[in-house]
Design a protein around this nucleic acid. Structure first.
Length: 509
RNA sequence: GCCGCUAUCGUCUAGUCUGGUUCAGGACGCAUGGUUCUCAACCAUGUAACCCGGGUUCAAAUCCCGGUAGCGGCACCA
């Protein structure tokens, strides 16, 4: 069976894709997008989404990062479909790990037996010197093929002597062409790479070899990955051909760029899913935003849940050029999803942020207490405070600065803030006096009632701001907030009156 | 340096295959107005782009040629 036929066999069958991060850093938003596109493609084809941790580089890999990646994926709602069942994992399965595989050796031995690969005894220094020389001459840096001429006996002799070697692939001179779902036809000339190293020794495959073997053994039908891998593709094809393995379909996704158009990285600020999560972005926002970076449905629709994406997504409509990660748009989308949330869910999402800023705490019996005074507050009170600011939130983390006055007893604001436009201090004092009287006479402490009574007075002044503005500042200590009547209702009559009184005193000082 | 990829408003993009319906459409941002005590939300209006140069054609963002720029990759990392 030719590789081509094998490929047809695969693609005629199940769609199987993989997300293969190396645990050398937290889950990057760019990787998350690669994972997303894989996930969407798998789901819409009733295929499988496989997670493979590429941890062959033990120096740089860590289990902390692996955990972060797993957590990030499941937080975003992308659960992988298979994996080992034993162990303590998030979700139904653990991930596959390259470090736990041991089938590479037989493939490497086969390559050597078939003379598609050979031992190379050149030292790293030698190779590096050659590389520098070629680069200086303006040529492609590649191995000169010195050890490819060694006879079997010579090789065995050197191995016997304990001379250190690596395994190189005999790269045939040819044009390597492949079809890319995103970019159509791509072509590389193999002469620019020379005989590449595919393994450090019989037990230790290098990345390109490991990928080919793993993808084959996991029966991966489509390799969907970042564009930064595009020049690895011809190498992997060559390896697969030498091994007589089928070649999967490829789709190389454009990169996620920073505002300066370079590949988005740590130096540009927040790049990991975890960081965005902590800043208060919702998973649905991140999914929606990431999907639209480099893909669009061809219609004007921009709001997409992951389930709708599964329906409408198509690899063919993926953009070819890199896309800049535009936080403003993310903020907009996040604000939209926050507004859509029902208040109970939003409250649960917000509470950790309020706790973190010491505005509220939970005591041993499970009751909530306000930050500074430790007075007991109800969940309904918290809910109300949040609900009054729901439409103002772009990020959940902003909840603290918007609602602090609900939980603090002392508002620290300058008395100038109480002054409406060019009113005089005396005018405002008298307005607040009137408001105090009005409020204190209200029996039915409801927003409507408060609003109605205060509005009556405000209308009679001719300039409503004279009443409403100082009242809001008195209640919140801020120059912007929800309507004073709503705030007053939430705060309660006692606290509201107290704050108005304090404002009057402040002005009289 | 070599190889590869890409190129429409500031940003994400539609349109490019199958040239005319497009003095280029949507969204974010920004600006202005409406609503309003403020902010937000909402509504309305506006702002702003076919990388450059040739060619083909009655007609080019769309086809051809040549530049230029940006990005990615060039490991005994992944």
């Amino acid at each position: 069976m030719t590789p081509k036929e094998k490929l047809n066999l695969i693609s005629a069958g199940e769609v199987r894709v993989r997300f293969a991060p190396s645990p050398t850093g937290s889950l990057h938003v760019g990787s998350a997008r690669v994972a997303l596109f894989n996930y969407l493609f798998a789901k819409q084809n009733n295929g499988s989404f496989v997670l493979r941790i590429e941890d062959t580089d033990k120096e740089r890999s860590s289990s902390e990062f692996e955990k972060d990646i797993l957590n990030g994926l499941s937080w975003l709602g992308m659960n992988w479909d298979e994996g080992p069942k034993n162990g303590d994992y998030i979700g139904d399965f653990g991930p596959y790990r390259q470090s736990e595989k041991s089938s590479y050796k037989k493939h490497i031995e086969k390559l050597i037996k078939d003379d598609r690969a050979y031992h190379c005894f050149c030292s790293q220094e030698e190779v590096e010197a050659e590389r520098q020389y070629l680069m200086a001459r303006g040529e492609a840096p590649r191995y000169n093929g010195k050890c490819s001429q060694l006879r079997t006996e010579e090789t065995e002799e050197m191995i016997k002597k304990g001379k250190k070697s690596v395994i190189r692939l005999r790269v045939p001179l040819k044009k390597v062409k492949f079809k890319d779902i995103v970019r159509k036809e791509v072509e590389f000339d193999s002469k620019i790479m020379g005989d590449i190293v595919i393994a450090k020794d019989l037990e230790t495959p290098l990345y390109n070899l490991a990928v080919v073997i793993d993808d084959y053994e996991m029966k991966i039908s489509h390799v969907i990955r970042g564009e930064d891998h595009i020049s690895n593709t011809p190498k992997q094809i060559l390896i697969a051909e030498a091994l007589d393995l089928p070649i999967p379909e490829y789709a190389h996704l454009p990169l996620v760029l920073a505002p300066d158009k370079s590949k988005l990285s740590k130096r540009h600020g927040a790049v990991s899913v975890t960081e965005y999560k902590e800043e208060g972005y919702l998973p649905e926002s991140i999914i929606n935003f990431l999907a639209l970076l480099g893909w669009n449905p061809g219609t004007d629709r921009e709001i997409y849940s992951i389930n709708h994406l599964i329906k409408d997504f198509s690899l063919e409509r993926v953009q070819k050029s890199g896309a800049i990660f535009n936080v403003k748009k993310l903020d907009f989308i996040n604000g939209f999803y926050i507004r859509q949330k029902n208040i109970d869910d939003l409250t649960q999402i917000c509470i950790p942020y309020l706790v973190k800023s010491n505005l509220i705490s939970k005591d041993d019996s499970g009751n909530y207490r306000a930050g500074d005074s430790q007075r007991e507050i109800s969940l309904d009170f918290i809910k109300k405070a949040i609900s009054l600011n729901q439409e103002r939130l772009k990020k959940v983390s902003e909840i603290s600065e918007f609602t602090d006055f609900f939980f603090q007893d002392n508002l620290n604001y300058s008395k100038d803030l109480l002054i409406w436009k060019d009113s005089s201090k005396e005018e405002i004092v008298s307005c607040l006096d009137k408001v105090y009287t009005i409020l204190s006479e209200i029996r039915d402490w409801q927003e409507k009632e408060i609003e109605g009574k205060v509005m009556q007075e405000a209308n009679s002044t001719g300039d409503r701001g004279k009443i409403f503005w100082p009242l809001r500042v008195a209640l919140t200590g801020k120059k912007s907030s929800a309507g004073p009547a709503e705030v007053a209702e939430a705060l309660g009559k006692e606290t509201s009156l107290e704050r108005v009184k304090e404002a009057i005193q402040l002005l009289k000082e």
